[in-house]
Simulated assay, not measured.
Amino acid sequence: MADRLAGKIAIITGGGRGIGAGITQRFVEEGAKVAIVQRNPPAHALLDDRTLYVKADLANSEQIRSAVETVVERLGGLDILVNNAGIMFEKTVDDMTEADWDQMMDINLKAPFLLTKAAMPHLRKRTGASVVNIGSIEGLASNPGHPAYSASKAGIHGFTAAIAIDHGHEGIRCNAIAPGWINSDLSEMYLDSMPDSTRVRKELLAMHPVGRLGEPSDVGNLAVWLASEESAFVTGQVYVIDGGRTKKLPLPIS
Rank of each mutant, 00 (worst) to 15 (best):
V68T: 00
Q38K: 12
E90F: 14
Q237E: 10
R65N: 10
I156E: 02
T235H: 10
P216R: 07
A59Q: 12
D94A: 15
A129V: 00
A2M: 10
Y53P: 04
V210G: 07
V240C: 07
G171F: 02
D218Q: 12
A206T: 03
R124G: 01
H208D: 04
V37Q: 04
S152I: 00
Y53M: 04
G76F: 14
D185M: 08
G139N: 05
L47P: 02
I80C: 10
I23M: 11
E138Y: 14
R50K: 15
F89D: 15
M194F: 14
S150I: 00
P147T: 01
E138P: 01
P144S: 12
P216N: 11
A59D: 08
M96G: 15
D48M: 03
L47R: 11
L5E: 08
L115N: 01
P195W: 05
T127Q: 15
A35F: 04
G244H: 08
V82N: 13
G139H: 06
A119S: 15
G220D: 02
F233M: 11
T13L: 06
I156R: 12
K91M: 05
T70R: 15
W225A: 14
T24V: 00
E29G: 12
A10E: 04
I11A: 09
V200S: 10
T92P: 11
A118F: 04
V240L: 10
E170H: 12
E29S: 13
K8G: 08
G155P: 06
R26S: 10
L75H: 13
A151H: 06
M189S: 15
G18T: 00
L114A: 03
E229M: 11
Q63A: 07
E170T: 01
A56K: 05
I163Q: 06
A148K: 02
L47H: 09
N133L: 03
Q63M: 09
H167Q: 11
D106G: 06
